[in-house]
Computed example of a mutant assay.
Amino acid sequence: MQDHWSTSYVGLPWLEKGDTRAGVSCWGLCQIVYRDLAGIVLPSYGDRFACSAEQAEVQAIIRGATSGPAWAPVALEDARDLDVAVFAVAGLDAHVGLICGPGRMLHITHGQDSAIVDYRAGRWAHRLSGIYRHAEMMERARAA
């Protein structure tokens, strides 16, 4: 049985604003996976905030990115691998994870290594704000 694509991204260490396998933030993890698996270069937003504790700035970045033409909202029941799930933290949309199967996401949080968790249960279930698909991924699906 072949490993799922997400397996090689589990266990990466947390690093504030990190975007390499040596250390990643939640958005940095998305950047790495999109670059590696889809050949899509996602923008870096590290220069727009000092640290992840600046939740309002992180929310503004996430909302700005997901409201642009590069991202389209996806219904929960239509979520598929590599869609980006956005979550509220302290009432602000300030965390992202990557869908990696029904009800599962690959993500990383401050002080923990990257992991796969069920976003329908536990601490993430009530925090899900939306799921988004990159326009290029939508175009590829139409072409297939």
Rank of each mutant, 00 (worst) to 15 (best):
M137I: 13
R123F: 08
W5N: 02
Q55I: 07
M105G: 06
T7V: 14
D47T: 10
D118G: 11
I108C: 15
G103C: 04
G111V: 13
R133Y: 07
G18Q: 01
M1I: 08
Q2T: 12
Y45I: 04
S25H: 07
H134L: 12
P13E: 05
R80A: 12
D78W: 03
M137K: 06
A121M: 11
C26Q: 07
L98A: 10
Y119R: 05
A90I: 03
A88W: 02
A50S: 10
S67R: 11
L128S: 03
A125D: 09
Y9R: 01
A94I: 01
S67M: 07
I62K: 04
A79D: 03
I40H: 01
A144E: 11
V89H: 03
V96E: 08
R63N: 14
S44Y: 10
V89M: 10
W14P: 04
M137A: 12
W27F: 15
Y119E: 07
V74N: 03
S67T: 10
Q2D: 13
D81T: 05
T66L: 13
L76Y: 07
W5T: 02
W124E: 11
W14K: 05
I32G: 00
L98Q: 08
C30W: 02
R133P: 08
H4M: 11
L82G: 01
A144Y: 06
P43H: 03
Y45N: 07
L98H: 05
D47Q: 11
R63H: 09
S8R: 15
A144G: 13
A135R: 14
C26F: 04
D78G: 07
R133H: 09
G28W: 01
D36Y: 08
L76C: 08
L98Y: 05
D19H: 00
P43R: 06
